[in-house]
Design a protein around this nucleic acid. Structure first.
Lengths: 348, 348
DNA sequence: CAAAAAATGAGGTGCGTACCTCAAAAAATA
DNA sequence: TATTTTTTGAGGTACGCACCTCATTTTTTG
């Protein structure tokens, strides 16, 4: 049988109350006594039953996921995964609240964050660009004992507890290797398309992409980033203009979302099948494009894992328990048509 | 506050005992009463607290992982992950037992499985080739109420509850696309190396590889599989002979383990850097080969996820609770130098 | 050495659920 | 309607742990 606190008390020759004091870092125990309890823990191989502990603690975790209110498919995917996670989390005394903030309004975001303590939130997962007001808001949350993780894009200059997401620079490097090798080593041009270079992820991916291109594929000419600002028309126009101006374009690298608009533009310009197209994030549109052979690869992260990892990290921070680094390291996934995972929304 | 069984009883106008009977499928409740309890569950949004339930149930899960006693790096990796999982599982009332069987002896395996019920095992995860005795052994385990999942390689003609692993045919297809695209579309030859084609995974991967090669890269000539039977010398010999016989070999596809021996052979033959090398399973040797540029890509599954998924599936089967299909679907991962995850054994 | 302070023990309650017993009520059957 | 059978209720105990109080013992301090 697995040892319990009672076994510990007997083994250490102390009372249950003292064991409890040691286990829960309560004051008023001599170092010598603490040591003897720890010895007993080691000797018996005692492991606290976290389920029973949390039950007794009456602890319920209320977690807020704060996302921009953009309608991008990635954010929608994330939201879907959060809905799925909600029901699973409920059974583990964890409640998930999803809040959306106006994407372009850092002050509105700060106001939402400032209101969280009143909502009795124990942890926050935040996907937002870093701004001075955000830094202050996070600092204030942390001071109030609320755990904060940065989701998807890091907030390195804030006091967030942790970042949950992939290394976007490495993701960009990965894209570059595939692009370079798929193109072959001849002289070629590659266009880079992004919604906006104000987003940290886009910038980091571009940096990583350029790293590898410069180093390993010097004959490939990477064109300046075309920004579309989310407009399909603008994307159409810039792609058209680029093709006209640089006839030798052999590949397109899509830094962010916008798979649908890009593939449409490629179709319209009659370039289908003649370009290597690589993008990020496995959204439904990206799936379609992969299946149809209109995209060659998608570099992504597993959004389900992302959500579950954020929850585990927040719980660990709240419990002040250690984090399993191996489990929480998200992988940079390369998805092609051949290893496309089944759409989880299709099966029950 | 989250509703409890007491709230349910009050809402449904029945006693706690009746709620308990309904929740746990105990007999002696009229359909009408069952319905009223279910209505209350729906109305209040009651979700059973699994932690409290398992605590009260005194349920402890003793899971056996049964692996071949081969010293392959993949099995070692798996073993390592099991050791890591053991401590985490302990806190969740789950005990992991790892058993090894003589790889070539199906009867010894059957004997080990037959002894499991006496060891009070609730679930078994099994990595083994399918044989008639194994089929019988699994059937007998299932009849005794023990959950069985096939690990890594499926046992489709047995009564296992589920398969936890990747689709190896799709993994082979994925390898083929990369091989084909990395080689370019000219006429080339690709060698295929395997330890043994008696293993189901190897066969399936080869089939998938051939599927795609035939369909998408008709100019590439895929040579017959060279079997090495785990001997580095033999591998050296066959690779050497093959290179002599077919000078146009541009790529090598490694169906199973043996990264170290293969890269050594390539070095010795002075072929380093002139071949596209693609293999399976992210073992320490494979990592080295990727970092050194001696392998181009590794197709793998996340072994940590594999273990955790097997545990979750077994628990769900034992509890007769539903399985989150999305979470349990393992992805076919493509690893190159650029997206190589940090070695989890390096950081604490 | 006495008084004050610190450490420890004894014992209880509760978390949400499972599972048990026995009596009482309700329904089905003769 | 009387009897048997089925259904329901009331109440208790247990799981492993957290957290509380108050009394008692041990140690430290003046």
């Amino acid at each position: 049988m697995r040892p319990t606190v009672n076994d510990l008390a007997r083994e250490a020759g102390v009372s249950l109350a003292t064991v409890d004091r040691v286990l829960n870092d309560r004051p008023g125990v001599r170092d010598k006594t603490i040591q003897s309890v720890n010895d007993a823990i080691a000797k018996l191989g005692f492991v606290r039953d976290v389920a029973a502990a949390n039950l007794a603690r009456q602890r319920s975790y209320r977690m807020a996921f704060v996302l921009p209110d953009t309608e991008s498919q990635f954010v929608q995917t994330l939201h879907n995964e959060l809905v799925i996670a909600t029901s699973a989390a409920l059974a583990a005394r964890t409640e998930i609240v999803v809040l959306r903030f106006p994407a372009e309004d850092p002050h509105a975001l700060a106001a939402i964050l400032a209101a969280l303590p009143d909502r009795n939130v124990a942890g926050v997962a935040l996907m937002a660009p870093e701004t001075p007001v955000l830094r202050d808001a996070i600092k204030s949350l942390r001071q109030r004992g609320i755990a904060v993780v940065a989701l998807v894009s890091d907030l390195p200059n804030t006091e967030r507890d942790r970042f949950v997401g992939i290394d976007n620079r490495a993701a960009g490097r990965t894209s570059a290797v595939l692009m370079g090798r798929f193109l072959g080593h001849g002289a070629q041009k590659v266009a880079v398309v992004a919604q906006s270079m104000l987003l940290r992820e886009a910038v980091e991916r571009r940096l990583g992409f350029d790293d590898v291109m410069r180093r390993d594929f010097p004959l490939i000419d990477v064109l300046p980033t075309l920004e579309t600002h989310g407009s399909a028309d603008l994307l159409n126009a810039v792609v058209q203009e680029m093709v006209a101006q640089f006839p030798g374009v052999g590949g397109i690298y899509l830094l962010g979302s916008g798979h649908r608009a890009l593939t449409l533009a490629i179709d319209r310009l009659g370039l289908a099948g003649r370009l290597v197209v690589i993008g990020h994030e496995l959204t439904p549109h990206a799936r379609e494009a992969l299946v149809a052979g209109k995209m060659d690869a998608v570099i992504t992260q597993n959004v389900g894992h992302l959500v579950r990892s954020a929850l585990r990290v927040l719980r660990a921070k709240i419990d002040k328990s250690p984090i399993d680094v191996g489990q929480e390291q998200l992988r940079i996934e390369i998805i092609m048509r051949e290893n496309l995972p089944l759409d989880p929304t299709l099966s029950p």
